[in-house]
Simulated scan of single mutants.
Amino acid sequence: MTRVWILPVLLVLCGSAVATVSALRGSPAEAAVLLVFFVLLAGMNSPLAFPRSIGALEPQRRSAVDGRPVVFWRAGCTYCLRLRIRLGRAARRAHWVDIRRDPAGAAAVRAATGGDETVPTVVVAGRPYVNPDPAWVREQLP
């Protein structure tokens, strides 16, 4: 679970260091902008940018009932972030599974991709799609 926070924490620490150096050189406004930039970047790469993740078995069961896609993702994945941003508020209508927090989710992705943990992997009606177009995923949402 702590692995998902390594990148965001490193981004905040690096941003703090860069902002401190900038402030010591006499540019407090630049330091503030840099710090805000790094904090936003850390937030976008953290699990907080994604809807609440649940275990892999539960969303697969729910998807069979309600027809919603299951999105397998992991923090720090730029393609997952791109999908999440492009879906906007509609992202909450999908079931999200963080493969770093759920070994069953990682196993499902490996089974779907031939042994890789390539994300985002979206399962619609029991069929996996690896790194699909966000517009297509939006069309699949009820």
Rank of each mutant, 00 (worst) to 15 (best):
L41Q: 14
V122G: 01
V4L: 13
I99S: 01
G67L: 05
D66M: 03
E139K: 13
P120M: 01
R93I: 10
G15W: 02
L34H: 05
L13E: 09
D133L: 06
Q60N: 15
A112V: 09
L34K: 07
C80P: 00
L34R: 06
L35R: 10
H95C: 01
V71N: 00
L141I: 04
A90M: 12
L34M: 12
V36H: 08
P132H: 09
G43P: 01
G115Y: 06
A19Q: 05
G126T: 08
C14H: 12
V123L: 09
A23C: 07
A112F: 05
G115R: 03
V21K: 11
R61V: 15
E139V: 11
I85F: 13
V4S: 12
L13N: 09
A107S: 14
A90S: 15
A91M: 02
Q140V: 10
P120I: 00
P120E: 00
A135L: 10
Y79R: 11
A112E: 04
P134A: 05
L41D: 12
P47T: 05
P59V: 02
P69H: 04
P47E: 03
R74L: 14
V123N: 02
G67Q: 06
Q140A: 11
L141V: 08
S53N: 04
A94D: 01
C80S: 01
V97Q: 00
G55R: 07
D98H: 10
W96E: 00
P142E: 06
G88C: 02
C14S: 15
A17K: 09
L57A: 13
E139Q: 14
L10M: 14
D98W: 02
A91T: 03
